[in-house]
Amino acid sequence: MSSARLHPVWAPWIFLAPFVVLFGVFMVFPLVSSVGLALQQTYGPDTAVRVGLKNFADLFRDPLFWTAARNTFAYTAGSLFVQLPVALGLALLLNQPGLRGRAWFRLAFFSPSLVGLVFVAALFALILHEREGLLNAALARVWPGFPAEFPWLQRHIMPALILASLWMYAGFNMIYFLAALQGVDKSLVEAARVDGAGPCSVFRHVTWPAIAPVAGFVTLLSVIGSMQLFELPYILLGGAGPESRGLTIVMYLYQNGFETGDLGYAAAIGWVLALFLMGIAVLQRALQREARS
């Protein structure tokens, strides 16, 4: 049945108007203007000189940018390999039939991801303290040979940040895995069990293929989030830390744009990061499509 339109022509635009106007002004416009900005050198927001592609040429020769990139990659790789298996493991445990207190466990694991990064940094400044911190005390107790006064913040900031991110985000990613696991066809799992498949074999041949798309999505989200690391080391170290060991790409963007005042260089860093992340997203989609066919 196709009836005449009952609503006035303007109706959808009334509802869209606030979004479209704000989106145009605060998203589309800055996005477009960032292209021009990346081709300028600025001294604060009011003075700008057109420099063409010089920012990008400088960036690729800038040793601090490469330090930032190396640190960011190390953090991203570390958090993926530590965090996602833990998240999947927790989800598998929580998905066991007959588990008691499931809602409480889920709440406990998820709760750290609600804490803002500044607040996590304030808390972890104390937890990671070399002499008095909780982490070194706990490690010394379970690992007798562990060096006393291990200098997390002075020398081993990336492993420390990976630990902090494990605490923050393992439960967050677990929620996605748990939702995926609840969608796995239970009759398939039963059938495999009846055929004599062990738990590992059931996971490999039934569960994993069913949750692989969500795993791909969670991996992509984690990469995108990890590559934007900024507040945690910035607050923990009060900047880049000794020998720039805590410098990250977004921190370098922030320092150039808002401490030095070169918004053009900051925009160029933003574009390099954005193009890299978009490339990863395209790659992930292509891989997923290939796996499906």
Partner: peptide, 27 residues
Amino acid sequence: AVTALVLGALIVPAPLLLAPGYALVHR
């Protein structure tokens, strides 16, 4: 067109908008 814009915006990472967004708010 609006739907395509919305989906496109999902892949723009926030740090890209820091410098131009600041310049805009300043202006």
